[in-house]
Design a protein around this nucleic acid. Structure first.
Lengths: 346, 346
DNA sequence: CTGTTAGCGCTTTCAG
DNA sequence: CTGAAAGCGCTAACAG
């Protein structure tokens, strides 16, 4: 339909210009040692003169490496994913790899399409930030032995390369912190329970309660899906309760912010009437008012580490896949405070 | 070095399975009309059974369309670019195109490499968010007649498809607003003056001053490069002045935030002692305290419109390139207030 | 050290 | 309507 390109300099043009066979040019391009220095410079000069650039597609079709890593992300929408990608981008740049990013919009269909596509050689490896259980991809990728790493996603049982954070511990610590502040009735808003991370956070919360002999009440647990409206709805429901919680712990920052809105809309103050804790420590957490107390995931670092693992795997294809959990950290800001008895009785 | 893929279903496998030639399979894949209905369904069934997926590289090598748009962005770092990309992503998804994103890290070298690479057919069109003057790319792309659109970047003189915002008007309005608030001494921190947008903002500021017969003082203008530290340094310098300004207008939000830090570090209050205005309205502008008064660029919309223009060009290759300027809008928040005489004399 | 020769998977003529 | 054949630009043996 279209005949766009008119100035394509190919390996053959260069070969003719340099007076060698195109096989030799290919060797020069790929830094093959078996080329006489003199020939090499001649070819290099021809390339320079003609403005030659390798054609990625042709190269990968022919089976060569592309020096490019593909990244699959659900979207660019949340601070959370952006941070991870930034880490990946930085690390890849450092190692002189190119980054090719695709967004899946959380549809299984697109995910599979991209996985199937990229695997055909257009990239050397894949970094997956998936929003759902990636079992299908994992088995595909594992079967064909294609290098990849999962980010923030502990598949259950399988052992595939992945990096995540200590979700359980982070949730435990945050809950414990609230308890030590005097809170006994702590509401919890879960993430999407299909994700291991969401389950772990809930379990961390429950464990902390049990440790301090506080009963786990089902009605204090609201099931969300990691989106802001879930936080709003969850907090609204929690506030309606007879004996409403004095603190709410949301499974991510976005939901925590939704919860803050809900609390304020009921005319309650944060943290005076209700303390709020989030999870992730996305950039906005610091700027929201009151600044959000939250469990920091080392998002950028997760991206970096995942990238390192993948690149490492590319070098040593036979290494056993490992799963890394990076430590989380409680960041105390202004959305939490000790439980004031007066406030409760008032 | 590596022999990864083992399960590649090609057009030939499908052909054999369906008992047709692979040319016919290609026709089916490309929705060519010249295939008997019966044959088509048979091929479709075979594709389904084998789990066939087209190979992008092979297709584009052979000259077909890829249904993919390439996006070149300086980085994923600032809220500004993220917003634009989100717009692109959304619009592309809507039109069933795939998005392939590359980051250039503001290096001319990477920019040219990617441009040269992508142009070989791996994508059907290019969206450029470049951080420097893209003259070189423009001429390359124009010469080979490759579809592209520039975002937020008015190259001077050339006429190539681009979308930007009304920078001059936005700066004029913001300055006028400060003047009407009673401010006479208004500091200005410029962006990188190699960019047309930066120049236009400065000119808008100057014009507003002139309209209200306020002298343009060179020492009130600090030259920055759009980075946060520039805002800090600029505000610091401005505050040091004998007769320091009562308001500071930074050419983007990031610098405005740097300026806020500087002002506070000198023990001055915002907006009581100094009003601050930014430009862009990145998401953080709303959450910073005090919330930042700023000139909103319709960032996401710019991404969308640029995408529409590009896609449109893909359909009608002969349309003349247009340049669109989307309107900016002054968003008044809490970082500005009327000049209080008392505050000045005190 | 260098040239030659197969393809990689697909689109596109060109013949039937 | 369908098959056959010629590449797209490049890598990777295989001969020299």
């Amino acid at each position: 339909m279209e005949e766009n390109i008119s100035s394509k300099v190919t390996i053959k043009n260069v070969a003719k210009e340099a007076g060698v066979s195109f096989g030799t040019v290919s060797r020069v391009v790929n830094n093959d040692i078996h080329v006489k220095q003199e020939t090499r410079t001649r070819v290099l000069k021809a390339m320079e003169k003609l403005g030659y650039v390798v054609n990625r597609q042709a190269r990968s079709l022919a089976g060569g490496r592309t020096n490019t890593i593909g990244v699959l992300a659900p979207d660019l929408g949340t601070g959370y994913i952006g941070e991870v990608i930034r880490g990946i981008d930085a690390e890849l740049a450092l190692k002189h790899y190119d980054l090719m990013l695709f967004t899946t919009h959380r549809t299984a269909e697109k995910e599979s399409k991209y996985v199937a596509n990229l695997v055909t050689g257009i990239v050397d490896g894949l970094l997956l930030i998936v929003s759902r259980r990636p079992d299908e991809h994992i088995s595909t990728l594992t079967r064909i032995n294609f290098p990849f790493t999962l980010i923030d996603h502990q598949a259950r049982g399988d052992d595939c390369p992945a990096v995540g954070a200590t979700n359980w511990q982070g949730a435990y610590n945050a809950t414990e912190y609230l308890i030590k502040l005097g809170h006994q009735r702590i509401g919890f808003i879960t993430g999407w329970m299909d994700l291991r991370a969401a389950i772990d956070r809930l379990e961390g919360y429950k464990s902390a309660l049990r440790t301090y002999h506080i009963p786990v009440e089902q009605k204090l647990i609201y099931e969300g899906q990691f989106f802001q409206p879930d936080g709003y709805a969850g907090a609204s429901a929690l506030i309606e309760l007879e004996d409403r919680p004095t603190a709410i712990f949301a499974s991510n920052d976005v939901m925590a912010m939704g919860a803050m809105d809900a609390v304020r809309n009921r005319g309650l103050r944060i943290p005076d009437d209700i303390s709020i804790v989030g999870f992730d420590d996305i950039p906005q957490a610091e700027f929201v008012r009151p600044a959000l107390t939250t469990v920091r995931q080392p998002l950028e670092k997760m991206g970096r580490v995942a990238t390192q693992m993948l690149l490492d795997r590319l070098e040593n294809p036979n290494k056993v896949p490992e799963r890394i959990e990076l430590p989380t950290e409680l960041i105390v800001r202004n959305s939490t405070m000790p439980l004031v008895e007066k406030a409760r009785s008032g």
